[in-house]
Amino acid sequence: MGLCFSRKAVKTKTSNRISHHSAVTGGGSSNRWTRIRSTKKDKLEDSVIHERALAAAILFQQHLQNGGDVQFDRSTSLRCPPSNGRKQAALPRSSSSRARSLTDPLLQPQQLLNQDVKLDDLETNHFVLVHGGGFGAWCWYKTISLLEEGGYRVTAIDLTGSGIHSFDSNSITSLSQYVEPLTGFLEKLVDTEKVILVGHDFGGTCISSAMELFPHKVSKAVFVAATMLTSEQSTLDMLSQKADSDDLMRQAQIFRYANGNTHPPTAIELDKSLLRDLLFNQSPAKDVSLACVSMRPIPFAPVLEKLSLSDKNYGSVRRFYIETPEDNAISITLQETMINKSPPERIFRLKGSDHSPFFSKPQALHKLLVEISKIP
């Protein structure tokens, strides 16, 4: 999940806990700024979600036992023309009209497909999903299933030391090392293929780094409750802005010092007893259980690293932001602050979503991703 802490806490050598807060800044351009609503109601039985959660947990444990390093390559991508880079004056707001609930029932597959999506007309139908800090590719299992049922290709990435990637999070010393599974994947794509990058939480920083390196391979970038930084800004810089007011995050965050207490922290763990309130306050209980046995420490060094983002590369990629108003990890206030600093092309809001919409509002999130893929 996203990381936030005060600089004072980072310098403390004797304390194991630090303050944590999340924020999101995004930039982008378009001829019109709109906040989009998720309006349709979803109707698949909650038992389907629970069955998939159980199946995903079993699959995850099997991969762990096999010692494998797995990528879930499931989707293809379509292209969308780049924006013209001009900023607009107004940001009209809208929010979801969906009733708030603890689960997000899914529609029947035939209803999902009835969204006027002509995959052959898209620039790309390949989504690449990038998890947040502590998460892994496993967290996208509902999104993967829904997108595939709609005919999309999906690749869910395990970043270094995350998910079932066999590497010690405490040994990660740079952002480039952390995002290598993502940049390695993009590097291997043929020059004519583009993808839609989707980043959640700290994954926003990761896809920003990839956009700077491979702008010609990214059709669009979608930030889901994610960190969207400006150039020469670190994730710590952004997340520290509201850290003093984030008591829950401060309580949940635990520093790990693999090199000893006299050296800087190497990783951060989250108190599992606080995960539900912090990350999953609107999510089904079985998804929370899956997360509790699957989340791993968050490497600390990448959080400190400042991004160098250029208008020519990063700025050439169309960006979209999906807000999560019931978010206890990256507050909606912080999301708005970052959006206002560097406005994306369009802003979407998932009413009733916690920090993890792939669990709490999977159908609404899916429909927004499909909608974004269709924007010409």
Rank of each mutant, 00 (worst) to 15 (best):
S95E: 14
A23N: 04
S96M: 01
R86L: 11
S75P: 06
K43H: 11
G26L: 09
W33E: 12
G28S: 11
K40V: 13
N84L: 12
S94C: 09
L78E: 14
L112D: 01
T34V: 15
R35Y: 07
A53W: 00
W33N: 15
L91F: 09
P82W: 00
I36F: 09
T39W: 04
S29K: 05
Q88G: 14
K41Q: 08
S38F: 04
R93I: 10
N66D: 06
Q62A: 07
G85C: 05
H50K: 08
S22L: 07
L44R: 13
A23S: 08
G28M: 01
L64R: 05
R74F: 11
R98P: 02
D69R: 03
N66H: 06
Q88W: 00
N84Q: 12
C80I: 11
D46K: 10
G27Q: 05
Q88S: 14
S75E: 07
L112P: 01
R32S: 15
N66L: 00
Q88Y: 04
K40R: 14
Q111R: 05
L91K: 02
A56P: 00
K41M: 09
S83C: 15
T34S: 14
Q61L: 03
R74H: 08
D42V: 03
K43G: 13
T76N: 13
H63V: 05
T76I: 14
Q110P: 01
K43L: 09
K40Q: 12
R52Y: 01
V70P: 03
R74C: 11
L106C: 07
T39P: 03
G27F: 01
C80D: 02
L113N: 07
N66R: 07
D69E: 13
A57F: 04
P109H: 06
P81D: 04
E51I: 03
D42L: 09
P105T: 02
D46Y: 01
A55D: 07
R74M: 00
